[in-house]
Design a binder for these strands. Structure first.
Lengths: 323, 323
DNA sequence: TTGTACGCGTTATCAA
DNA sequence: TTGATAACGCGTACAA
């Protein structure tokens, strides 16, 4: 491997001169600099990341940690993160799984964006105590080295519930997500608040897990008990799709007999007929904001927790049953 | 930051003793070792990856490079890679974009798996010449430091074409992928071979780009010229879905008037009615195989190029028009 | 422009 | 045997 030492030898200068030249320091004359650069290029010199990192105590790499690699969900989010980071001279790497957690404490990366249930709060607080900078997308975590960039889940759930109620629905089903996820818990809090405000509405809560299968299971329950139009709020789109497919296959009409609202507005919903009503937010913006906040933390700038706002996308999956 | 120096000070031994103890060397007495481990734990010691890497000239991190982060496509593939790597004590990071290419030559990672058109062949060969180990999933590349793990695209395209022809289709459309992708080119070679073997079949080639939109565009062309049952081979599923949706929305019946075969068997096709006929292969296995080959390369073991075998999944999107 | 200490962990060599 | 000393990997940056 060719190092600055080799360049120094070829150029007949010291390694420090080479280093200065490569970094464009004015301490070296332009002639010497260009001569050194030419030699470096000729020798195919490429700096060693480990050596630079050891000295500078930074890698200019940011890690995004995901619970798993599945999910069409993440494309835009990661793209948003990457664009911001690249613009500021940072690289993004995506990691998943318990083993990869080490990258943070071992200082391989300068900071992390967490959307990963395999990290416990304690573990993250421990990293933060060590001085590592974090942005969390999947929990609330109070620590000066941690910034939250969270979805406005409550507003979204409110929008979804109000939409069903305003369309005349008095008999509702709620299909929940896993109890250990922040998003599901927050959405359920807002659901209960809405229900408290509307005593005329009856609601049945069905346990779900954010996967298609639990949407199908919910559809079975709803169909078994069917005796007139109902509204269903699935706490994410994937379950709404499962419900949609199962009910449709059983001859039920979504948007007439069963009104459905999802959450996330994932790409997949474009393939549904009728179009799914759902809660939208910009995943790209979410990722971009997470990166911006993380860079601010790293640069020692002041940061406040951020919220990503959501909106209702109306589709034909919800009918107005007020006559 | 606490380093082995701090531990040595606390334990009253030299830093080398600490290092030996931490690495379980028999050169240190069990008592001393356990005492040192206790102190390390108490001080919350975590080794510095850059320092270890600088000395050992390895990071035990493997990079998977993807053209972009979109595509539900990659979940299983990456999972397959990760499982194999983790089992062997390696970590996987996922990278995308031109900037991240530097991770390889700068020796941040011990090897790379490439499914990324933003790398040119020349660039990869240059890396290989430098001694970096590569596995390519998206091209043929002959170099002792490069291993190919490729889909058996030709067999898949043959299966698809034969299936349509065996079901009586004599009027075919082929919707291609981008001309600069290996997969599309290989599939087209097999398509032409099949057509050469079947002079009784007429085929129209429509340019596509592997995205849903070009499937829709193809549907428009096919519908405009429609005068009886046709068979369509879309070189990937995403275009097949676009074609399917557009044609269905126009009142055409897939699996009756228009028979469709896709390629890839992506999860999304589960949402289609009727079920799409397509070419299946295990993405998980593809990823696992790529990792295994890369580790063999890194360990200096002999490797031969690998093929991932494919099979036909029959769905109702193809009808038999032989009466 | 150059010599050199430094960042931190690993390991060969040498002394007790 | 046990453990300490020092060289090493490579680039950076201060002092000279």
């Amino acid at each position: 491997m060719v190092s600055i030492k080799d360049i120094a030898k070829h150029a007949g200068v010291s390694i420090s001169t080479v280093s200065y030249a490569l970094n464009g320091s004015p301490k070296v004359t332009p002639e010497t600099t260009s001569r050194i650069l030419a030699i470096a290029k000729e020798l195919n010199y490429i700096p060693n990341a480990a050596a630079r990192q050891l000295k500078k105590q930074e890698s200019r790499i940011i890690g995004a940690f995901l619970t798993d690699f599945t999910g069409a969900f993440y494309g835009d989010l990661l793209q948003g993160m990457k664009e911001v980071l690249n613009r500021k001279g940072y690289d993004l790497i995506v990691c998943s799984g318990l083993q990869s957690h080490r990258l943070l404490p071992e200082r391989m990366i300068d900071g992390a964006i967490i959307l990963d249930l395999t990290f416990s709060d304690e573990e993250l607080l421990d990293f933060a105590d060590r001085g590592h900078k974090l942005v969390v997308l999947d929990r609330e975590l109070n620590h000066p080295a941690v910034n939250e960039v969270l979805l406005d889940n409550k507003a979204g759930a409110n929008l979804a519930m109000d939409y069903l109620i305003q369309n005349g629905h008095r008999k509702l089903y709620i299909v929940t997500g896993p109890k250990d996820t922040f998003d599901s818990r927050q959405r359920m809090i807002a659901v209960r608040q809405t229900l408290d405000r509307h005593p005329e509405v009856t609601a049945v809560v069905l346990d779900g897990d954010f996967n298609k299968g639990s949407g199908e299971a919910a559809a079975r329950v709803i169909i078994d008990a069917y005796d007139g139009p109902v509204g269903v709020f699935c706490l994410n789109d994937e379950m709404a799709i499962g419900l949609h497919n199962y009910a449709t296959a059983q001859g039920f009409r979504i948007g007439e007999q069963i009104s459905v609202v999802g959450f996330d507005n994932i790409d997949l919903t474009r393939y549904l007929q009728p179009q799914l009503s759902t809660i939208h937010y910009s995943k790209h913006r979410w990722g971009a904001m997470a990166s911006e906040q993380l860079l601010r933390l790293i640069n020692g700038e002041s940061v406040e927790h951020e919220r990503i706002y959501v909106s209702l996308v109306e589709g034909e999956s919800v009918s107005n049953i007020i006559e």
